[in-house]
Design a protein around this nucleic acid. Structure first.
Lengths: 223, 223
DNA sequence: CGCTCCCTCGCATCTTTATGCGATTTTAAC
DNA sequence: GTTAAAATCGCATAAAGATGCGAGGGAGCG
């Protein structure tokens, strides 16, 4: 099974890349394998946006730097129309901001353009199988995101258990009277607790307290 | 240069793993290369916490499942004492919650125990070079974090640019009058915008709006 | 025992928000 | 060239929130 002809079960791949040379190279590379098949390719986001969906690719290789509409925005719009399609971003270097914007736009993988062909093929398979291929360098950028809150806010730790409990309810948008109903205490008691919370967090409004709370702890997880 | 003897410039690796068999296997494997060198190994977190720092490892392979203090907590405490050391978590399968807890505790890599030896060695080098090796499956878990609102909050997208702008200010805890000063518009205009925001988000208080906003979009990035 | 902290409750007052019902202008879309 | 949406402003009223002052009961500590 080394025939370069398109296998029926090969992964349908689309390419969006403005450099003619690189684009042709990718097409050629994909054509030489049986696991992938280039079904279409575009030199800019505009043409990809209008014509790419017709080809029903399963995986899209997307250059992040495109003239006009850039790769991130292109992914955002395409992902909206084709939620099941997997996008791999290609970039010349790991631009931190764009990594996140791409991931948030719906991309699943993030590779450097100088990735060798075999690794790129692996990545296409991985992303097609539900993984998120990315270079360790780029992964580190992502990982650092989860580490940037070293000591979950010193002020927050000064709150008493009851105060933390109420702060959580505040952050969920409950009215004072709803907190009253929820905790079975009087309105004035709620006021007193919140007053203390404000003192300890050095704020003067509930939204500021909530902002400080949500901004300085693991709003990510349950515990 | 195939001598199993410790090279001077080899990466100093520590191992924390409660399964004697696996631990011995890792030590043996690392001993057979010139790029790494096992400098110590422990069967539980407690002994690692007290003795590991003395050996000054550069990379630590940490089993996530340990009796008593678990691997995540162990990393948290060790990372506190040795910020420059890189930790790679080892797990039998990709447990979603623990992935994040590990990353937040300070781990940089996350691999499955069944990772083949060459790949594990690569990972040690990568983490030592500032990367974050992880399997594509685990990377996907991390990536999904940035996408966890598949259609990034339908309601939020209905907001006009100005409304989004004001919502951001609201979420930072600014008073109406502060928003007035910030945007150079009248108090009543701010009211009108916020009224529309409430309508579109189906809420009736600023905190509820902020909660909805922070809970369903990119609180991560600038724009 | 006195001290401190937490949780509870009350009253009074002032500020901030929420919302109903308007309006005009500009710009983009059909 | 009408329609629609966005951004701007105004007035009025009612609800919610912020804050000052005070106070009693219980848990824990030196």
């Amino acid at each position: 099974m080394n025939a370069p002809t398109a296998a029926v079960n090969s992964i349908r791949v689309a390419i969006v890349e403005d450099d003619d040379c690189i684009r042709a190279g990718l097409v050629r590379m994909l054509s030489r394998t049986s696991i992938c098949r280039p079904v279409c390719n575009f030199a800019n986001a505009e043409s990809a946006l209008s014509a790419l969906p017709e080809y029903k690719p399963e995986v899209v290789l997307m250059d992040i730097n495109l003239p006009g509409i850039d790769g991130v925005e292109c992914v955002r719009r395409l992902k909206d129309k084709m939620p099941g399609v997997q996008f791999i971003m290609l970039t010349v270097y790991g631009d931190s901001d764009r990594v996140f914007h791409s991931l948030m736009a719906g991309a699943s993988g993030y590779l450097l353009k100088r990735t060798p062909s075999p690794a790129l093929l692996d990545a296409i398979c991985e992303v097609h199988a539900g993984g998120s291929p990315m270079t360790p360098q780029i992964a580190r950028r992502v990982v650092q995101f989860f580490q940037k809150v070293p000591d979950r806010s010193p002020q927050l730790e000064k709150l008493s258990p009851r105060e933390k409990e109420i702060l959580v309810l505040l952050s969920e948008g409950l009215l004072y009277k709803e907190i009253v109903a929820h905790l079975g205490i009087s309105l004035d008691t709620v006021r007193t607790h919140i007053r203390k919370i404000y003192e300890k967090l050095h704020v003067h409004s509930r939204t500021a307290a909530v902002a400080k709370y949500l901004d300085s702890s693991d709003r990510f997880l349950s515990g």
